[in-house]
């Protein structure tokens, strides 16, 4: 199957400053490294020096968290230009962003905020994705979000929304399996049914992460996309089910808060690759079957 990204079908890790030296020194067998674009938008210094060195040995996935594609307002042209110069410099195998907004009225909230799913918001996201792809001169992947609230005005299902955007812009999708679990539990949906309906042929990358568990005002389960712990078994099982539909796909372990030592991250990548290996020839691992 032709994937909408050039990332290898292997497990990758988020690149963290605390691990720069370790990675350069020991060149661990990791499929790719993913960076948050915004952390490499300074003019120079150690971030660029290390990314330069690491990009010589590993495919790089550029993951934006600040473009605010779901915003009501126009895209920030200066931010697009910064993304373009990163892409020109590091030639990442993939560029991805979120179905979310984070900037309003020039204030940046440093969080991925939700949007209602309506024909109007869909058309706006389509025009923003078009603009991004045209400006960057390449295809992007759009990621399904973790959400904690719903909107009364929403009339379109999330998967239909994403599929429409793909259809009309030619973009690919980043399937965050942890986000599927978080949103499904939060909105009493069936995560397996979500995966079964997802347009997997559009998926260029998968994200896995650990969630935190809380309860809402009515005492219902409320999962939070915390990226602060190992991937939980239910998410691994859902991942296994996902791969049974789409085969091995580049898979990132996201661990952004309370970042552990590199060995712990590496072990998480190995776990994901073990699941992937079970799908090399179409078979599934019995542990999760």
């Amino acid at each position: 199957m032709l994937r909408p990204s050039a990332l290898p079908p292997r497990a990758g890790l988020g690149l963290k400053p605390a691990h720069y030296a370790d990675i350069i020194e020991s060149k661990p067998d990791v499929g790719f490294f993913e960076v948050h674009a915004e952390n490499y938008m300074g003019d120079g210094g150690p971030p660029h020096r290390y990314l330069e060195a690491i990009s010589e040995h590993y495919p790089i996935s550029l993951h934006g968290v600040g473009l605010s594609i779901g915003a009501e307002g126009p895209l920030d042209k200066a931010h697009l230009a910064r993304l373009k110069s990163l892409i020109d410099r590091y030639r990442p195998a993939s560029f991805s962003e979120h179905l979310a907004w984070s900037t309003h009225d020039s204030a940046f909230f440093n969080d991925l905020l939700p949007l209602p799913y309506t024909p109007q918001t869909r058309d706006r996201v389509v025009s923003h994705v078009d603009e991004v792809q045209q400006f960057l001169g390449q295809r992007m992947l759009l990621e399904n979000p973790s959400t904690y609230v719903l909107f009364e005005e929403s009339t379109i299902d999330e998967i239909d929304f994403l599929a429409d955007v793909c259809e009309r812009t030619g973009c690919g999708l980043l399937l965050d399996v942890n986000n599927v679990m978080v949103s499904s539990v939060n909105h009493r949906l069936d995560p397996v049914a979500y995966i079964d309906r997802f347009p997997v042929e559009r998926v260029g990358e998968i994200h896995l992460a650990g969630y935190d568990e809380a309860v809402d005002g009515a005492g219902d389960r409320l999962l939070i996309d915390a990226h602060a712990s190992p991937v939980l078994d239910d998410v691994f099982s859902l991942y296994d089910h996902t791969l049974s539909r789409c085969g091995p796909v580049a898979t990132l372990i996201e661990w952004d808060n309370n970042v552990p030592d590199f060995e712990t991250l590496f072990a998480e990548a190995r776990r994901a690759e073990a699941v992937m290996e079970g799908h090399q020839s179409g078979k599934t691992l019995s542990k999760f079957a």
């Binding site: 400053p17 605390a18 720069y20 948050h36 150690p46 990226h227 996201e254």
Partner: peptide
């Protein structure tokens, strides 16, 4: 040098 710097996040928190 490497421990320095605030970063963006795409994660939430409990």
């Amino acid at each position: 040098d490497c421990a320095a710097g605030a970063g963006t996040t795409c994660a939430g928190t409990s």
